[in-house]
Amino acid sequence: MINTLQDTVAVADTVHKSEGGSGWILDHVLDSHKIDFEPFGSINLPHLSLFGLDISITKHIFFSWIVALILIVLLVVVAKSYKKSLIPKGITNLFELIIIFVRDEIVKPTIGKGYEYFLPFHLTIFFFVLLSNLFGLIPYSTTVTSNIAVTAALAGISFVAIQFGGIRSNGFFGYFKGLIPSGMPALLLIIIIPLEILGLFTKPFALCIRLFANMIAGHVVILSLIGLIFIFKAFVYVVAPVAVGFALFIYLLEILVALIQAYIFTMLTALFIGMAVHQEH
């Protein structure tokens, strides 16, 4: 009885959605209110709202929590291992490598003096983005950072961090005064001031779009390549190996992209903070 009902719904759905041939790709990369474990079924996530704002738990939020949880567990293990001995062992080696890389190659050269204050923020950004990017490569999982809302939120946090860093070291008025190059004629200020204010927002906007586009692109390409197999059903034995080969190549490229994008996001955030902190440059 129930089976027939579900079948009816499924058929209706199929008929409804069959108009868009590429809808399934979008469906795969878009956020949703359930976690799919096709063909084993799916878990529906709760709907919530706060002051009229829809804050339902979505697939991407759920996975960002998993990412956060894994990060906490792993890093606590790493932190504990240092209590036993200062000599790194096992997983600590890997994390130490990344932590020292973020510290010495990203944060220290870009922010310079007083970088220690921003280090935890950058480490968190780096690890969160990196693990989110890599998480998308696990089957049944999803790329949290391929949701523009997530990258927008991260970029927003970067924006706040940049302004905070600037105000912290230059003072509220000092920071905003420092944004405008000194010795400008008054007439030019009319153009410069809106430009500078716009510049404040374009930096994080670029961060947001860059990460989002890079992360979604790889997935769309992989899915499109797989889709080719079904479009060229007649030539499946010719198309499938080629498509799978290319998909595998893109998949491996995705690992590189995941690392690079995490690096770029952190690097640029650090660079912008460095610029806000040391306005004289």
């Binding site: 199929t14 959605k17 809808g23 399934w24 878009l30 096709e38 804050i55 339902s56 979505t58 939120a153």
Partner: peptide, 24 residues
């Protein structure tokens, strides 16, 4: 299932405020 099981009519640049809230 893969090809036709799309759900909402959303696009990839839909910004869901709830997701922003939760991410922050």
């Amino acid at each position: 299932i893969l090809i036709f099981a799309s759900e909402g009519g959303g696009t990839i640049i839909d910004v869901n405020p709830g997701v922003i809230f939760w991410t922050v």
